[in-house]
């Protein structure tokens, strides 16, 4: 299991670094926003993400050249229109984003070390961070959580080398 996840991370990462920046738009954007809408439906209904109404948040994964532009309208996250500048931007490399997602590292720590950067309206970025921190992780299946942790650990090593 460990060896498999190791080689998947390593090969996948090298492949991603080469291919993804060549694409005009990250093909996963639609799927990712769909996933956010299903996973965060309760929070959306409770109005916890209303601060993103008609605002554009741009998340950039620097090493993979992935740019995710998300906004919110009504009770849904939506893709942000092209050509309109973002209100708030967050960027870091893939290993650091995964470290945050898997609960391995604290975003403020990465910020102090200049590995995570914020631009535009700081309040949007900060509120997104706090909202995501407050999500109940027990809703993520145990295997998925464990997988995320493994890949995060592995990617941290791959990127460091």
């Amino acid at each position: 299991m460990l060896a498999v996840s190791k080689s998947i991370s390593r090969i996948g990462y090298r492949f991603g670094c080469k291919i993804l920046p060549l694409l005009p738009k990250w093909p996963g954007e639609v799927a990712f926003i769909k996933l956010l809408n299903t996973q965060l439906s309760e929070e959306l209904e409770d109005g916890l993400f209303d601060f993103l109404d008609e605002q554009i948040l741009e998340v950039t994964v620097t090493d993979l050249g992935i740019r995710l532009r998300v906004s919110k309208r009504g009770d849904q996250f939506v893709r942000a229109p092209a050509g309109v500048p973002a209100d708030s931007t967050i960027s870091a490399n893939s290993a650091d984003f995964l470290a945050i997602a898997s609960g391995r590292e604290d975003p403020d720590t990465l910020f102090f070390q200049r590995r995570l950067s914020l631009g535009g309206q700081t309040e949007i970025g900060l509120t997104v961070k706090n909202r995501l921190d407050a999500l109940d992780r027990s809703r993520i299946p145990q295997w998925a959580q464990r997988g995320l942790e493994l890949i995060a650990a592995e990617l941290a090593a791959v990127v460091a080398n």
Binding site: I100, G103, D106
Partner: peptide
């Protein structure tokens, strides 16, 4: 209190 669960755990 402004930090993430990852900080608190560590």
């Amino acid at each position: 209190r402004q930090r993430s669960p990852a900080y608190v755990a560590q």
